[in-house]
C-alpha cells in the first residue's frame, strides 16, 4: 500500500470523513425515526451537524480538581479507537482495508476503549453524578460484553477463521448458512444497545436520575467529540454486526456494494431505534441480571448450535 492511498484510507474512505458523515447521518435517522414513532415531527436533517458545530464554538470548562490530561484526552481516545476499528471491517465487499487473521478480536477490544474513556472522563471530572455514571458504565461492560463476544465468535467458529473478512467471505460462499446465526444476531443487537448506552440500557447516562452521567462536566468541543465518538461507534458496531451476520450482496460492483452496506447499517440502526422507543430504562441490577440470565445463555446456545452444524456439514 502506498503512502498516498494509506492517507486517503485514513482521512477519507473508509476513515475519518466517511465515518463522521455517516455517523451524523445515522444520528439523524435514529432521532427522526424515534420522533416519528412518538408521533412527532422530529429534527431537520442537518440537526446533528448543527449540534456538533455549535459545541465546537462553546467555551471549554475544566472543573476544578479534575485530572486535566485525562479529562482532555478521554474524548480523543474514544474517537480515535472507533475510527481505527473501521479499517478491519469489510464494507460492501469481502475484504477490509487491512484484513489479517484475528482482526475480529482486535475490533472487539478497540470497541471497548470508548467505554473505558467514558469511565475515565466521568471518574476524573470529580462530580458525584459523573462518578455514579462512570461506575454504571463499567458495570454494564461486564454484563453485555461477554454475550457480544460469544455471539460474534459463534459465526467465526463455523467459518473456521478469526478474521471478519474471512467470516464475510465464508458466508458469502455458503448462502443460507447465515440463518443458523439468527440467535446470535439478536444477542448482538441487544449487546449493541448496551454498548451504545441507549434505552433500555442507558443507565450510565440516565438523564432523569443522574443528569448526564459521565458527560455531566464536559462542555464545548470535548463534549462534541464524545458525541461524535458515540455516533461513529453506532456505525462501526452496526457495520461489524452487518459484516458477520448479514452476508448479502457482497460480490457486487464497489458502488452497488457500498449502497447495500449502507442499507444494512440503516436497517440495524432502525431496529435499534425501534427497540429504544419500545422499552423503558432498566435499573442497573435488572440490566446485569437480564444480560447474565437471558442473553448470555442464548449466546452460549448459539455456540452449541454452531458446533453441531459444523459436525453436520
Amino acid at each position: 500500500m502506498t503512502v498516498g492511498s494509506a492517507v486517503l484510507n485514513i482521512l477519507v474512505f473508509p476513515g475519518f470523513l466517511f465515518l463522521v458523515a455517516f455517523g451524523l447521518a445515522g444520528e439523524f435517522v435514529d432521532r427522526k425515526l424515534y420522533a416519528r414513532l412518538q408521533n412527532r415531527q422530529g429534527p431537520p436533517w442537518y440537526q446533528p451537524l448543527a449540534d456538533f458545530l455549535k459545541l465546537l464554538g462553546k467555551e471549554n470548562v475544566i472543573p476544578e480538581g479534575a485530572d486535566r490530561p485525562t479529562f482532555r484526552l478521554a474524548p480523543v481516545f474514544a474517537l480515535a479507537a472507533v475510527v481505527a476499528s473501521i479499517f478491519y471491517i469489510p464494507l460492501g465487499s469481502t475484504t477490509s482495508v487491512l484484513p489479517f487473521e484475528g482482526d475480529l478480536i482486535v475490533v472487539l477490544y478497540l470497541l471497548v476503549i470508548p467505554t473505558v474513556a467514558f469511565f475515565l472522563g466521568g471518574w476524573t471530572s470529580r462530580s458525584v453524578f459523573a462518578t455514579i455514571g462512570a461506575f454504571r458504565a463499567i458495570t454494564q461492560v461486564f454484563a453485555y460484553e461477554i454475550p457480544l463476544f460469544v455471539a460474534l465468535l459463534a459465526p467465526a467458529l463455523l467459518a473456521n477463521t478469526w478474521s471478519i473478512s474471512g467470516i464475510a467471505a465464508y458466508y458469502a460462499g455458503h448462502p443460507w448458512l447465515w440463518l443458523v446465526n439468527l440467535l446470535g444476531f439478536g444477542v448482538a443487537l441487544v449487546s449493541l444497545l448496551g454498548k451504545l448506552e441507549k434505552v433500555p440500557f442507558d443507565t450510565p447516562e440516565a438523564e432523569t436520575e443522574i443528569v448526564a452521567g459521565s458527560f455531566i462536566e464536559y462542555s464545548g468541543r470535548r463534549l462534541a467529540f464524545f458525541r461524535l465518538a458515540i455516533d461513529c461507534e453506532a456505525i462501526v458496531g452496526a457495520s461489524l454486526v452487518a459484516a458477520v451476520f448479514l452476508p448479502f450482496g457482497l460480490g457486487l460492483t464497489p458502488v452497488l456494494g457500498i449502497l447495500v452496506y449502507v442499507a444494512k447499517v440503516l436497517l440495524i440502526l432502525g431496529i435499534l431505534a425501534l427497540l429504544r422507543t419500545l422499552f423503558a430504562r432498566l435499573r442497573i441490577d435488572q440490566m446485569v441480571h437480564f444480560c447474565w440470565s437471558v442473553v448470555a445463555p442464548i449466546a452460549f446456545l448459539q455456540i452449541l448450535i454452531n458446533l453441531v452444524v459444523r459436525e453436520l456439514i
Binding site: Q41, P43, P44, Q47, V61, E207
Partner: peptide
C-alpha cells in the same frame, strides 16, 4: 415538539445554551 427547532432539554448547565 420543540425538537423541530433543535431544542433539547438538558439537565446540566455545562451542556446548555
Amino acid at each position: 415538539d420543540l425538537e423541530r427547532f433543535g431544542v433539547l432539554l438538558k439537565g446540566t448547565p455545562r451542556h446548555c445554551d
